[in-house]
């Protein structure tokens, strides 16, 4: 019974991911695209939970959906009509090439996965109940992956500074 439930939840979440993903890419109104992305993030959070990554699921919802997407929506609102994004063209060669590239990547990954499935992708490891808990993740951050932790914080600092710089009012002579 539990297995079936998990499967159903998985299928729903997966469908949600895919549907919202396609929506993000194809809608012409960026506001709707952003909302679709929020949905995508929520579906992903469900999938994270299924994979015993509780902390990460929470972080995803709080940080990504909560903060980052709100930023997006703010900007869309600021831009107003200028943000409209019709499906404008571009050289047809470009469009074909894009599709081909994406398809190639996809096919390639699927093939590799298929080749490795039998050996590597069955029998996941047994994990304790605290796998994916904030405590354990935090412990790793501060011991094995301290460098990553610190560098990430520097990246965030740079982004903050950059954001401020970009947001400065242009000088008077900088008229368009």
């Amino acid at each position: 019974m539990g297995n079936v439930l998990v499967w159903i939840i998985w299928l729903l979440a997966a469908a949600g991911c895919l549907a919202t993903g396609v929506a993000v890419v194809s809608l012409t109104n960026p506001f709707y695209s952003a909302l679709a992305l929020i949905g995508n993030l929520a579906s992903l959070a469900v999938l994270f939970l299924l994979l015993s990554a509780e902390f990460l699921a929470a972080a995803q919802v709080l940080v990504y959906a909560g903060a980052v997407m709100v930023m997006f929506l703010f900007v869309v609102a600021y831009l107003g009509g200028r943000a409209d994004a019709p499906w404008a063209g571009g050289p047809p060669l470009l469009r074909t090439a894009a599709v081909v590239a994406a398809a190639a990547l996809l096919v390639e990954v699927v093939v590799v996965l298929g080749l490795a499935w039998g050996d590597n992708l069955t029998d996941p490891a047994d994990v304790s109940g605290s796998f994916g808990s904030p405590g354990e993740v935090g412990e790793l951050f501060l011991t094995d992956h301290l460098l990553a932790f610190e560098i990430t914080s520097i990246v965030l600092l740079v982004a903050a500074v950059g954001g401020v710089v970009l947001g400065t009012t242009p000088e008077k002579e900088d008229a368009a």
């Binding site: 902390f55 972080a59 993740v137 951050f141 990553a148 990430t152 990246v155 965030l156 982004a159």
Partner: peptide
């Protein structure tokens, strides 16, 4: 998961 968290942080910075 640690890596994924770092990615999230960097993604946030990049979006900003």
């Amino acid at each position: 998961q640690v890596f994924a968290l770092a990615v999230m942080a960097v993604a946030a910075a990049e979006v900003a």
